[in-house]
Design a binder for these strands. Structure first.
Lengths: 213, 213
DNA sequence: CATTGTGAACTCATTCACAGCG
DNA sequence: CGCTGTGAATGAGTTCACAATG
């Protein structure tokens, strides 16, 4: 059981994928699954599955495979999704509203507990979820009050860094950034970016090349 | 000028990033920029910038750096974003609506030319952009008619594969998938996934570890 | 003479191949 | 016997270091 080996980021991404497929396997009535099958489902190499899991422990039974439910539990522990995470979202435009209504977050224990905006027209409005949009100037105070773990940024480009700074100031430990801005962050804050246009650029690059060649 | 060397996917992602920062640099009045500065802005290594660009040609001037506007043009050519791309979106829920209204796409030449849904309540409704929501059963025909290059999937998990199959059938060359489903795709179609919960899982994993250690 | 462009060195990630074990 | 777990081999991507040059 090797700990503190350096773990590739791609491993974490795949773990998330394995987890999702294990849910489906369980739903389909499987009790156990071999690395070969799980790998096939996730479109990766079987050795990759075993190596990924091997970073964190020995979860399999030789000659049999992995117990579907137990492996789910283990991956949840590894990813730290075996608990509720409290999120605050800043920027309640179209995207922000869509994120607030997104069922996938809730289903996985990611819960929006506060919503912020700068627009006086929006502040005070009640969302369908019951949340009331708060003034972003109260962000710091409310992060504490609502014990927010994760800040979500869905502002336009222009407001993103400023919003991030408020989250940093409030000592939020992690940010999920949906704006195309590249945020300058202090060491104590972890950032993940979800950048739509970068993905589209990758797509068009591939289109140009895969098709031309 | 090395062509047909294998180019890392990460290089393409960074190219997209370089481009965005070059826009900002131009806006700030810069005529040239050295790899060191561009690298610093993008939070990468200067040699990385030069290597990335080196895959596609020699765009710099030794002793000076890169011409900001010319490099923009070159990267646009490389990424094939020096043209308009026509997109069709399937699944006009909260997320789909937000994507349709997203200004970042339009600003970069990615244009929604059709919107599809299965819900009879929605079909026929006109969106603020002027687009009318069409029945997804007409997808194949309309992909041709509107010369759609890229399919965007913003359906829930359940409908995603079926929707993708329709795009495949209509011979769309690329798909941007916002659903958490892992799509099975034929060879002729390129897929990029934007998966919110995977990103959150990465975040919580990091939170658990960076903080614990 | 500052900065690019690039082979070589290095670091990180994936896959192989097989010993170990239920 | 079948499948895991893992060290060793391979492959990919990044960084170094410096020769080339406008």
């Amino acid at each position: 059981m090797e700990r503190r080996e350096k773990i590739p980021k791609a491993t974490i991404t795949r773990l998330s994928l394995y987890y999702r497929h294990l849910e489906l396997l369980e739903f389909d009535g499987y009790r156990t699954v071999a690395s070969e099958k799980l790998a096939w489902l996730c479109q990766v190499n079987p050795a990759q599955v075993r190596k990924d899991l091997g970073y964190f422990g020995e979860f399999g039974i030789r000659g049999v495979g992995y117990d579907v439910r137990e492996l789910q539990r283990e991956i949840k522990k590894i990813l730290a999704v075996n608990r509720e995470w409290r999120m605050g979202i800043a920027g309640i435009g179209n995207l922000g509203t869509a994120l607030l209504k997104n069922q996938n977050f809730k289903a996985r224990g990611f819960r929006f507990v506060a919503a912020f905006d700068t627009d006086p027209e929006k502040i005070g409005n009640q969302l369908s979820s019951g949340l009331v949009i708060r003034d972003i100037r109260d962000l710091k105070e409310l992060v504490k009050q609502y014990r927010i773990d994760i800040g979500v940024i869905s502002t336009p480009y222009s407001g993103a860094q400023e919003t991030a700074n408020m989250f940093f100031d409030a000592k939020v430990a992690a940010i999920l950034n949906f704006s195309p801005a590249q945020l300058q962050a202090p060491d104590h804050c972890i950032i993940e970016n979800i950048d739509f246009t970068v993905k589209l650029d990758i797509l068009t690059y591939k289109l140009k090349n895969e098709i031309a060649i």
